[in-house]
């Protein structure tokens, strides 16, 4: 069944005043909010700017503020987003430079992600059903069979939702931010190199690192991938303090 969805969208171009515009978009009743956003472009205004690619919460491009909260519109059903409301309200992420309409500039964010040292793939959980795998025989880069662990992409899809939700990011864009600090935390867990680990911890142990966080946990609350950046920041703090205490007593 097709339904009419009223949507109020943030519109902006450099040099003009930001404002909202209202549209009606027709979508199937099982559509997600990204289909409605795409409908604004398809049915009403081909100049409308928004980001999207995969439509299954893997690319991380489509993140917006939906009805006041950070969401990936590709995995929010329209009926759920409209429940108890007159209209959908869609705005760009906060704490990023605006480019146009819903599009924000993610360059600075990805530069911090690159500096965090997080490798995009991780060793997969051996257990899909609780039974550990002894070993895996997989094809190598040259196409020959070799024994190695399964791998998979990291949970973080670099969508920027935690940056938008973070009250500290609102105060300063110098702050490393939840995603990069969570990346540093993951990198400290996966590296086997003591010096590299020390360098990663030094990155986090800075004025704009873990100590700038106000422990609001909005990042953990809003993360669509259960990365728990807030928890990662707390773990980094404990590890950094633990090392300092050890060092103080001459054990480091």
């Amino acid at each position: 069944m097709a339904i009419q969805v009223p949507i109020k969208v943030f519109r902006y171009r450099p040099g003009t005043a930001p404002h909202f515009e209202r549209y009606q978009v027709t979508v199937p009743d099982d559509a997600t909010v990204i289909d409605v956003i795409e409908g604004v472009w398809a049915e009403h205004d081909r100049n409308f700017m928004f980001r999207h690619a995969c439509h299954h919460a893997s690319c991380g491009t489509c993140a917006v503020r939906l009805n006041g909260y950070e969401r990936l519109p590709c995995i929010v059903p329209v009926t759920e987003a409209l429940a108890g409301r007159q209209e959908l309200v869609v705005e760009p992420l906060r704490n990023f430079p605006l480019v146009g309409d819903l599009v924000v500039d993610v360059a600075g964010f990805f530069q911090k992600q690159a500096a965090s040292g997080l490798v995009i793939t991780r060793a997969a959980e051996a257990t899909l059903s609780g039974q550990p795998f002894a070993h895996s025989e997989l094809f190598s880069q040259a196409g020959a069979l070799e024994e190695r662990a399964y791998n998979r992409f990291e949970n973080c899809i670099e969508c920027g939702i935690c940056i938008s939700a973070c009250p500290t990011m609102a105060a300063t864009d110098k702050f490393w931010g939840p995603a990069a600090l969570a990346g540093i935390r993951r990198a400290t867990l996966t590296t086997g190199d003591c010096q590299e680990k020390a360098a990663l911890l030094a990155l986090a142990d800075s004025e704009q690192g873990v100590w700038r966080c106000h422990s609001a946990f909005e990042c953990t609350e809003s993360c669509p991938q259960d990365v728990d950046p807030g928890g990662a920041i707390m773990s980094l703090r404990r590890e950094i303090v633990g090392r300092k205490v050890k060092h103080l007593f001459g054990a480091g």
Partner: peptide, 15 residues
Amino acid sequence: LILRRIMPDAMELNG
């Protein structure tokens, strides 16, 4: 087999 070599870290290579 080429992409495995030139883009090795950006794939889940589990067969």
